[in-house]
């Protein structure tokens, strides 16, 4: 329902909040980043790598932003690649980057193995990695948030002993 300026004015006078749909279609850093990735610009120096099955939607991107923000990590420090860009993994160094694989199905495709000493997995190029539910799953089944929260805290803790 569209309100006239007079109606907005009247509601404002009465102290009634006016709610509108969130305009979140604007490009956020990760989305811009995804565009860059498709042009072949992958920043291998980022400390965090997220591997997804496919490009993120606006809602998924917003959720990813919130997830990393909740552990004080800015999306500027996160590189997002899709499974189509998996060859790019070789460019990342296990000394600098930790990966988060979104989705069990994707993790099976990546041929990951358990780490000998740490509570995490390793990708073929030895990058430490954790697996979490996909963002799509998380949006459709919020009960998966528990697992995601545990994984994201583990991810943060994994970074601390390794690099600090």
């Amino acid at each position: 329902m569209k309100l006239s300026p007079e109606q907005y004015f009247a509601l404002d006078l009465m102290g009634i909040p006016v709610w509108v749909s969130r305009q979140d279609e604007r490009l956020t850093p990760a989305e811009s980043q995804n565009e860059a990735e498709h042009n072949g610009h992958i920043d291998y120096s980022k400390p965090w790598l997220v591997i997804t099955e496919e490009l993120l939607t606006a809602a998924e991107n917003r959720l990813l932003n919130a997830i990393f923000s909740s552990i004080d990590i800015k999306l500027d420090d996160v590189m997002v690649i899709t499974q189509q860009q998996i060859k790019a993994l070789d460019g990342f160094s296990a000394d600098k980057t930790i990966a988060l694989v979104l989705g069990e199905t994707l993790s099976q495709k990546l041929n990951m193995r358990s780490h000998a000493a740490l509570p995490c997995k390793q990708l073929e190029n030895c990058l430490l990695a954790l697996v979490s539910p996909s963002l799509k799953q998380l949006l459709n089944q919020p009960q998966n948030k528990v697992k995601m929260w545990q994984t994201i805290l583990q991810l943060r803790n994994l970074k601390a002993p390794q690099f600090d």
């Binding site: 509601l11 404002d12 102290g15 009634i16 909040p17 006016v18 709610w19 509108v20 749909s21 969130r22 305009q23 979140d24």
Partner: peptide, 12 residues
């Protein structure tokens, strides 16, 4: 719910 909230009324 913040899904509907990008632009709150001036009073908020």
């Amino acid at each position: 719910e913040l899904g509907m909230l990008s632009q709150l009324g001036q009073n908020l």
